[in-house]
Design a binder for these strands. Structure first.
Length: 648
RNA sequence: GCCUGGGUAGCUCAGCGGUAGAGCAGCCGCCUUGUAAGCGGCAGGUCGGGGGUUCGAAUCCCUUCCCAGGCUCCA
């Protein structure tokens, strides 16, 4: 007798000719109803697919990640059908499900704009109402080519397919070259919404024609769709560009230039606090701080190889007679020049040069975005010159710094991507043996530190492999923050050397490393991570003093002097407003503490403390409040707070 | 760079061929206040820049600058 194996290990008998949906029905009518597709031996198939003896069988419901994926894929088909109906002659290309939804890239006959989306949605709903059965059809390559003789995109896709693995999905008049699987009929789609239109090059290559991409999202129920849209709204409210404006942190001006952020006093204070913190941690770990300016003779980049590999991302040269200068797009050649400014013994190593350097990169105009993609950026960069034997230890040290810094910022969930070269790509400097050693050094350093990582081919820098740290913020979004790179190539090119124990000259290994990446981008991440409510140690203003009436201004000033004298960042709100309005404004500015002072407080030498996010108040002596804040800051900054009083 | 959308007062936005608007912010007064918007008045704009169409342009067309969302997690 024939049977399939269920996920719980039980065997379920099947009849000859049984399809996935029959098996689901036999397990339970309820399951049959919730089924989207099935899984046979781990492979997703349509509910209409035949089932065979001995296979492992699993029903996939719309609540599972795979079911949702299929649901979205099928929704993309319905959208494609709607567009073909509304814009006859349009050519379909690809339409996959993606994180959160789906898209379809189409060469639309005519023009589609955002205002057309409701119309397309409307047509999609109509298609759902028609409840068209969706079925799969296996065809030969020749048949598929005949179907798509007017569609060069699909023909290109078909060309890359093997004979025998070509399938078409049909629903009513509509058909699409597709691997599947799909839901049973258009009536089985859930709640969906078309979100936006964008241009997208065919196969992502700017040499190819531009297609119209329409993004949508789809969910099993209306309720889930609503809650997803609400989450999007929440993320929008945290947008660092909006908060940056509201909190008076930074601005942009076409008068200065695109992609060049201008920091207001509060934003600059934030930068200062961020950089100061990393500087301190680095100093503690034996890094030395250097400074190498903004302009560099182009010849240096020719020598280092950057000119060849990186020129597109540099600002054009500034000519001075025979000499061409470039705005500095990276520090490594400058730091190597520092290294070369004197002779080195193996006893000097490792040498760790750190610099908060403002770099200039010519990002394409369309890629600029808020603080996350800018043309002037401040990198918390460091270069470590060491012997090959020291790589592991220095890597571990860099890792320690990264853990400490990210931990303090409450990024505890991160993974490591090991970016390796793609041996077939011309992008990389070729030196087989050195690449091998560099990759090996990184792997063993990661292994020694017990950090899990996933290797990715083709993501390496041109001079060597790197370990990138991807951290999740409170919304679960992932950001690439820290990076550690091993470089066996540049030091040799720029003639870096040290005298070894053997009295011979050797080339040092160079580790490149950044902790927060760039101050600008990291600030954007922090703003969104904290929704603008920075922890007290990081807040530009830690306490706002609100006098009850004008006659309390004098006492407010006294409180300000005393708290500032203890190292707190405080401000008196002396605007011509009512007390209520001042509380409102300072609360909106997300100041951690609002201190209300009136007759009672002035008499007692106290402040009335209203911590951020509450309406609760308590009265404390000025000194008591100062201690409270200092203790809070010390706790948040961990062991580093001890050194902060002494300065760096 | 390319596609789509957008740029109107410091901010958020309305107006979309017929005399430039609102709220907030700002300024000036009054109020002197006990925990998220007190009241009144005033001022503020070459409608991103340039060119064109028109009797007439914020509005239509061209061009340029800037901003937003995108630009292969493969049919």
């Amino acid at each position: 007798m024939s049977a399939v194996k269920l996920p719980d290990g039980k065997e379920l008998p099947i009849e000859p000719g049984d399809r996935a949906k029959d098996v689901a029905e036999r397990i339970g009518p309820r399951l049959r109803r919730d089924a989207v597709v099935a899984k046979l031996d781990g492979k997703l198939v349509d509910l209409d697919a035949p089932v065979e003896d001995g296979e492992e069988f699993e029903v996939v419901t719309r609540d599972s990640p795979e079911g949702l994926y299929v649901l979205r894929h099928s929704t993309a088909h319905a959208m494609a059908q709607a567009i073909l109906e509304l814009y006859p002659g349009s050519k379909l290309t690809i339409g996959p499900p993606v994180e959160g939804g789906f898209y379809y890239d189409i060469e639309v006959a005519g023009r589609v704009t955002d205002e057309d989306l409701p119309r397309i949605e409307e047509r999609m709903r109509e298609i759902v109402k028609r409840d068209l059965p969706i079925y799969r059809e296996e065809v030969s390559k020749a048949e598929a080519e005949a179907l798509y003789r007017d569609n060069p995109y699909k023909l290109e896709l078909i060309r890359d397919l093997k004979e025998g693995e070509v399938s078409i999905y049909r629903q009513g008049e509509f058909f699409d070259l597709c691997r599947g699987p799909h839901v049973e009929s258009t009536g089985k789609l859930g709640a969906f919404k078309l979100q936006n239109i964008a241009g997208a090059y065919w196969r992502g290559d700017e040499k190819n024609p531009m297609l119209t991409r329409i993004y949508g999202t789809a969910w099993p129920t209306e309720k889930e769709l609503k809650s997803y849209l609400r989450r999007l709204e929440e993320a929008k409210a945290r947008d660092h560009r909006k908060l940056g404006k509201d909190l008076n942190l930074f601005t942009f001006s076409p008068d200065v230039g695109a992609g060049i952020p201008l920091f207001l006093p509060k934003g600059e204070m934030l930068r200062h606090l961020m950089e100061d913190f990393v500087r301190e941690v680095q100093t503690k770990h034996g890094y030395e701080h250097v400074w190498t300016g903004h302009l560099v003779n182009e010849r240096l980049y020719a020598k280092s190889g950057h000119l060849e590999h990186y020129e597109d991302a540099m600002f054009p040269p500034m000519k001075d007679g025979e000499t061409s200068y470039r705005l500095k797009p990276m520090n490594c050649p400058s730091h190597m020049t520092l290294f070369n400014s004197r002779a080195h013994s193996y006893r000097d190593l490792p040498i760790r040069y750190a610099e908060f350097a403002t770099l200039y990169r010519y990002e394409k105009s369309g890629e600029l975005s808020g603080l996350t993609r800018v043309r002037s950026l401040t990198q918390d960069d460091a270069h470590i010159f060491c012997t090959e034997d020291q790589v592991q230890e220095e890597f571990a040290r860099a890792l320690e710094i990264i853990r400490e810094v990210l931990g303090t910022y409450e990024f505890t969930d991160y993974r490591v991507r090991l970016s390796l070269r793609d041996p077939d790509s011309k992008k990389y400097i070729s030196d087989e043996e050195k690449w091998e050693r560099a990759e090996e050094a990184l792997r063993s350093a990661l292994d020694a530190a017990g950090i899990p990582y996933e290797p990715v081919r083709g993501e390496a820098a041109f001079y060597g492999p790197k370990a990138d740290f991807m951290a999740k913020d409170v919304l679960g979004r992932e950001w690439q923050l820290s990076t550690i790179q091993v470089d066996f190539i540049q030091p040799g090119r720029l003639g870096c050397e040290y005298i070894g124990e053997d009295g011979q000259a050797h080339t040092p290994v160079l580790l490149h490393r950044a902790v927060t990446g760039t101050t600008e981008r990291f600030m954007a991440v922090l703003i969104e991570h904290y929704a603008g409510a920075f922890p007290t140690w990081l807040s530009p203003v830690q306490a706002a003093i609100v006098p009850v009436a004008d006659r309390h201004l004098e006492y407010a000033r006294k409180v300000e002097r005393e708290l500032a004298g203890r190292g707190l960042r405080v401000e008196v709100d002396d605007s011509i407003n009512t007390m209520q309005k001042k509380i409102r404004e300072n609360a909106r500015q997300k100041v951690p503490y609002i201190l209300v002072v009136g007759d009672t407080e002035a008499e007692a030498g106290a402040v009335n403390v209203r911590p951020r996010g509450t309406k609760k108040q308590e009265t404390q002596k000025i000194e008591e409040f100062a201690e409270r804040v200092l203790a809070e800051v010390a706790a948040a900054r961990g062991s580093n707070s001890d050194s902060s009083a002494g300065g760096v």
